[in-house]
Design a protein around this nucleic acid. Structure first.
Lengths: 186, 186
DNA sequence: ACCTCCATGTAAACTGTTACATGATTCA
DNA sequence: TGAATCATGTAACAGTTTACATGGAGGT
């Protein structure tokens, strides 16, 4: 997956591993996170496979920048992937739900404290998404009108992020109430 | 993670790798999926580490069953994990959002078709959750009253699943409308 | 005759995370 | 003086997926 994401970005313009990491961290990382180590090694591997080429740009002081450019073969790989529709619903991996699943015997007060903490964390995420949305709408869309169509799609994924966080918070509230009720019954 | 999940299950009763797989497939797999190969190898590793013990139960015909039992050290591992509250919001990996993120240049009709297919798939998932909910409420909860408290927590995770699928469907509808609008403008 | 279920495993490949490692510049 | 940013990489490990492999029992 990270290969496709890198290629998808390089379709816009040549970039270094560092640039890619910066870009990811403010966009796709919200639904597909990657460490810089993975990005650098994947870029090297893709260069061997002829999907990207690289050129070293010397810097005054500090390490040289290695700028990667997508090749026609690289373009083909992303496009083939995009043209092959997804026929399954993606499976999620949600550690917090695993915890709740096995929490029946835990001290309810500790479970409640954990739910409250999660609520705070998800609220913060929602806040980040709201700011990103504003940034996309008020800066990117105006400064780069040629990206208008792309921004529409980026905003869609952001709206999913916001829906997700709101839904998560509602569920946390619901679960909190339920555990409190369970506690009072005894 | 799969280690903890296995231990969490073995706390209820001794089980074989096969049993674990069956159980997972109808519960936790909705938010943490595992293949049988991983379960079998993890069980072996955990036996070496003293977290579980195994006993072979011969079958008439067909392979023997290897039944795993949790040890005190195993119990401690799950409990320690549960007592250490989670202090981050889990990061999601949602392949479909990656696709949407990079879909600006795709043929809108194909994107729309893919959204419609996803909608169907998520509707089916919701349906499965509804059936599981009914099963938990009307069978398990009545046949095993000693599990009442556990069932409450299991139902909570199911409700998250249902909220998630509903939210996803709403987002798909929203996105579908938006792409259609985008298309008509041109 | 064929499919599904029961039941177990190994091996290889792929993917992802954590830790180690360096070093200049800029800002508080 | 110390932290953050720019900029790159390697190595070891952990976790996950895919493919290969076997074979009886019971139902259609």
């Amino acid at each position: 997956m990270i290969r496709t994401i890198i290629l998808g970005y390089l379709k816009y313009q040549p970039m270094t591993g560092y640039d890619l990491k910066q870009n990811l961290d403010h966009s796709i990382s919200h639904f597909w996170h990657a460490h810089h180590s993975q990005i650098y090694t994947t870029l090297r591997k893709m260069e061997e496979e002829g999907l990207v080429t690289s050129e070293i740009i010397p810097q005054n002081g500090s390490p040289d920048r290695r700028v990667y450019t997508i090749t026609p073969a690289g373009r083909k790989e992303v496009e083939d992937w995009l043209n092959q529709p997804m026929t399954t619903a993606s499976t999620i991996k949600e550690e917090f739900l695993v915890r709740i699943f096995f929490s029946a015997e835990r001290d309810p007060q500790e479970v409640i404290a954990e739910l409250i903490l999660q609520r705070k964390l998800h609220e913060e995420k929602l806040h980040v998404y709201l700011q990103l949305q504003e940034h996309l709408q008020n800066k990117i869309q105006k400064e780069f009108p040629q990206l208008a169509r792309d921004v529409t799609f980026w905003l869609s994924t952001l709206r999913m992020g916001m829906r997700f966080e709101k839904m998560y918070m509602e569920w946390l509230d619901e679960t909190l109430n339920e555990i409190q009720r369970l506690n009072e019954q005894k």
